[in-house]
């Protein structure tokens, strides 16, 4: 017989016992351990996921902050550039103004110096010119010239206008001392007589005249009484010319000299030339 029923029963019992034992010793603990591990892994995965989410959030936050920082930095840079540009413009402006001021000062200083040098030169030149002229005329002055001057003086006396005649006449009448006739050289008697006659004729009275020699006149004759004076001398012309030149130079020093002084200068020069011509004619 292949089947032993006692063995069958025993094996059934054995198997059931084995099932029970294996359930307790193998399946339960193993499955429990697997479950625990799976839970652990799930927890760790969840924690990792949470950390990942946190990290992502922090990453996003950081990125956001970075972007904000970049924007702020760009804004600050733009502002700084603008400020720097404005400051540069301001400094450049100041420097330009300072440079302009310095240039203006320098120009002014140069102009003043130039004017000063011009003045010195012109003054010196004028002095030299007049000294030379004075010397030349003094050298040229002779007795015959004095005689000729006497004639001119006499004619001038005769040609005096009524108002001048009256003024001088009054002065002659009121004068206590004799009237002085000054000349550069001593006049000859003939000339003295002619002048005496001319005075007497002009003022219709006998005037007591006293003749004096005065080299300062250079060449000429002068009658002066109580502040009234009738004269003709080169010194007069020179003094008049000098006065005109002085006026011309003074006009040049004024703030707007060029526009206003130019015609004046021409006029003055014309006047000075005229005076010189007259003097030249008189000397002839």
């Amino acid at each position: 017989m292949l089947i032993d029923w006692f063995t069958v029963c025993a094996q059934v019992i054995n198997f059931l016992i084995l099932v029970w034992l294996m359930k307790r010793s193998l399946y339960k603990p193993i499955l429990s351990a697997i479950e625990t591990r799976e839970k652990k892994i799930a927890t760790e995965i969840a924690a990792a996921d949470a950390k990942k989410v946190d990290a992502q959030r922090e990453h996003d936050e950081f990125q956001h902050k970075n972007e904000e920082f970049d924007k702020k930095r760009a804004a600050l840079m733009t502002k700084a550039h603008g400020d720097a540009k404005a400051e540069r413009e301001r400094l450049l402006g100041e420097a330009r103004t300072a440079a302009d001021e310095l240039t203006a000062k320098r120009k002014e200083s140069l102009r003043a110096e130039s004017i000063k040098i011009n003045e010195a030169l012109s003054s010196r030149a004028r002095q030299e010119v007049f000294a030379v002229t004075r010397k030349a005329l003094a050298d040229l002055a002779t007795t015959s010239l004095e005689e000729r001057m006497g004639e001119v003086f006499t004619r001038r006396l005769l040609e005096l206008d009524a108002k001048a005649k009256e003024a001088i006449g009054e002065a002659l009448k009121t004068a206590g001392s004799p009237t002085v006739i000054r000349s550069a050289f001593d006049l000859p008697d003939q000339e003295r007589t002619a002048i005496q006659n001319a005075v007497n004729e002009t003022f219709s009275t006998s005037v007591d005249l006293r003749f004096e020699a005065s080299p300062a006149l250079i060449s000429g004759i002068e009658l002066s009484v109580n502040g009234q004076k009738v004269s003709w001398s080169i010194d007069d012309y020179l003094t008049s010319l000098e006065k005109d030149v002085d006026e011309l130079l003074t006009a040049k020093k004024s703030p707007e000299p060029a526009k206003i002084a130019k015609p004046t200068k021409t006029a003055k020069l014309t006047k000075a030339a005229k005076n010189a011509k007259t003097a030249k004619a008189a000397s002839k």
Binding site: L2, I3, D4, W5, T7, V8, C9, A10, Q11, V12, N14, F15, L16
Partner: peptide, 11 residues
């Protein structure tokens, strides 16, 4: 053994 296999089959 057929006894064992029969026991398992019976189970």
């Amino acid at each position: 053994s057929l006894s064992t296999t029969a026991a398992l089959a019976l189970c």
